[in-house]
């Protein structure tokens, strides 16, 4: 019909534009997407709503990723959270931000370190029951030893960057492409 307004208010939009690297058109597009994902129209996204997309439902890391999206830890994702996380991972986000995002996937308690237990849990999500705990623990131990330069038994963000930050093509791999 041609008379549909997108539902974001002007101030909100400006605010988001400042916060993220998206243009107004991109933001509007994202908002439409957000509304579409928001099946119950609550203005926030919950895990259940994400699960209705086949590709996402199958992603073992989904829960972790959504926890990182959810900055205020209310188990729901608001549009601003959605935008800021996507902004980080878009091509306009810096490499450091992206690595930080990846780091956060492992850093479950958000204390700035990847502990032994945290790495174990994330790996467990990734492999499910296909490896036993002993094997998994071995992988975890090796990885921690490998990266832990100051021998505190944890991997800090700096150590993390030293470990993987210089790998070829890493930036593209964490970046998210989407066509316009």
């Amino acid at each position: 019909m041609g008379n549909q307004h997108s539902g974001v208010s002007k101030e909100h939009l400006d605010q988001l534009k400042e916060m993220s690297s998206f243009s107004e058109t991109e933001l509007k597009k994202l908002y439409r997407r957000f509304q579409m994902l928001d099946k119950d129209g609550s203005g926030t996204l919950t895990t259940d709503e994400f699960l209705s997309i086949p590709d996402l439902a199958l992603n073992p890391l989904l829960e972790r990723v959504l926890q990182i999206f959810d900055k205020n830890h209310d188990n729901e994702i608001e549009f601003s959270e959605f935008v800021s996380a996507l902004s980080t991972l878009s091509h306009k986000g810096s490499k450091e931000e992206k690595l930080k995002f990846l780091f956060n996937v492992y850093d479950m308690d958000a204390d700035g370190f990847i502990g032994n237990g945290e790495l174990f849990q994330v790996l467990k999500m990734m492999v499910g029951t296909n490896l036993n705990d002993v094997q998994l623990q071995q992988i975890v131990d090796k990885t921690i030893i490998e990266g832990d330069l100051d021998k505190d038994g944890k991997i800090s963000f700096d150590e993390f960057i030293l470990m993987i930050g210089n790998q070829e093509g890493i930036e593209e791999k964490i970046s998210v492409n989407w066509s316009d």
Partner: peptide, 9 residues
């Protein structure tokens, strides 16, 4: 991670 987020969008 990136695949998951790509699908999000």
């Amino acid at each position: 991670l990136s695949d998951g987020v790509e699908v999000l969008v």
